[in-house]
Design a protein around this nucleic acid. Structure first.
Lengths: 245, 245
DNA sequence: GAGTGGTCTAGACCACGCG
DNA sequence: GCGTGGTCTAGACCACTCT
């Protein structure tokens, strides 16, 4: 165990919160009490508390004890990307049905977003995402060929594409998300089971690697009565957590 | 000057970076050097460096000096909240037309979100937001009475409510945003200038102070052809930036 | 006034990066 | 091996909250 003390303390406190030992709204022990309990000085104790504050788990202020605000810590980047992860955080059972996967020349706006030449190929997927077995979101994803090729041989009904890509060492670094609303088209209507023209939440996403090179473009449409997109941000930390449902 | 030392140090370093004294890619002085220069101990110096790291200004690691990464600090929280700020970042001219402000008992779901008793009063606003003079978003905001009272006397067509509240010392700490899509109702239709039933992007937001006490509830509806909500997140830093348009 | 977190000091040892 | 940041201790004073 060469784990730093402040990490150990943070982990122990996190466990008490997640385990319900310290319910939402409860006060944590004071810094002095934690020092005595763990036989540590104030430095590490304060560092551990700062970590939990960053994660949005606790709040508080001068003269007041820290208070439990939330039971689930934020995991900013991955949770922003992965429908699977976001669903699991929220307690829903995620599922998926691949409708189509193809290697083709993408439409001009998509090609432009991915900075592809007009004749370059990309891997496109149409996939229906489920929450507790009900159609919740329809995603139209486009990957640059070098990244997307292996997906042609993968079992895409099995789980998260992001987990698969990260496992293979793909350098996912930044993402830009744009939200708006759009009326359901015929494909949306058929697969999501809503009338044509009904309002859907659309998230368009461009994911890039750490050099800024585009990797993935996606157009995701959510059925608003089944799934919403939620995110939390706090002033001090810059952590943001995203979830569905 | 009752400003804490670590804040002062952070401000001085931030100034050197913004002023080009420390260009992007340059190394900062070592912690020991900063201690000598400012005649401080390591604690405050490290706290100041941690602040800049949080803002995405500097990076670095064990054994290496801190390196300047960027010259402009991210201000994630405010930019997440303020339509005005988000518009300015994107280069649009924000505007607003207050339609109504009232002190009343909010509808039960809103009262529940704000943890109010059924007979407690709250301040409710209906305000149309403009981008370059065109109707872009309609917000229905509800503030707990203690926070919202001063708004009854403020000039709400002048600028950002958040700037006003923060100036008055209101402790805005965390916000939870939920996005979905909804069909325009009669009020939306009239003020936003879209047909009844057309799809709108809806953002519902609950803002709390650092003890977790709810302060504000808002239901914001965006006209998708005029305004969208965009956010960027990166893997390494937890900074996220939001914008409209 | 007692208890709490916010801040600061002075000194120490360790792990990592680099020459 | 030396300088760096990462971690930890022990003690101190102040500002704030609560009662």
């Amino acid at each position: 165990m060469t784990e730093p003390l402040h990490r150990t303390l943070a982990a122990k406190l996190r466990e008490r919160i997640r385990g319900g030992d310290l319910p939402i709204g409860a006060s944590l022990p004071s810094e002095a009490e934690l020092c005595r309990e763990f036989d540590a000085s104030r430095g590490p104790v304060r560092q551990a508390l700062a970590t939990l504050r960053e994660e949005g788990l606790i709040g508080g202020g001068q003269g007041k004890r820290p208070v439990v605000l939330d039971a689930v810590p934020a995991q900013p980047f991955e949770s922003f990307l992965s429908f699977t992860l976001r669903a699991e955080i929220t307690g829903y059972a995620p599922g998926q049905r691949l409708q189509e996967i193809a290697l083709r020349r993408p439409e001009p706006p998509v090609a432009a977003a991915l900075q592809l030449e007009p004749d370059q190929l990309a891997v496109q997927l149409l996939r229906l995402r489920l929450l507790d077995g009900k159609p919740a979101m329809l995603e139209r994803m486009t990957y640059v060929e070098s990244v997307g090729r292996p997906l042609l041989d993968a079992d895409l009904d099995a789980g998260s594409i992001y987990a698969y890509l990260i496992d293979r060492g793909v350098d996912l670094h930044a993402a830009r998300h744009t939200f708006d609303a759009i009326a359901a088209d015929a494909t949306d209507s058929r697969l999501l089971g809503v009338p044509v023209g009904s309002p859907l939440l659309r998230e368009r996403r461009l994911t890039t690697d750490s050099t800024g090179t585009p990797i993935e473009w996606s157009d995701d449409r959510y059925r608003p009565d089944i799934a919403t997109v939620t995110m939390t941000n706090t002033r001090s930390s810059k952590a943001a957590r995203a979830a569905v449902a």
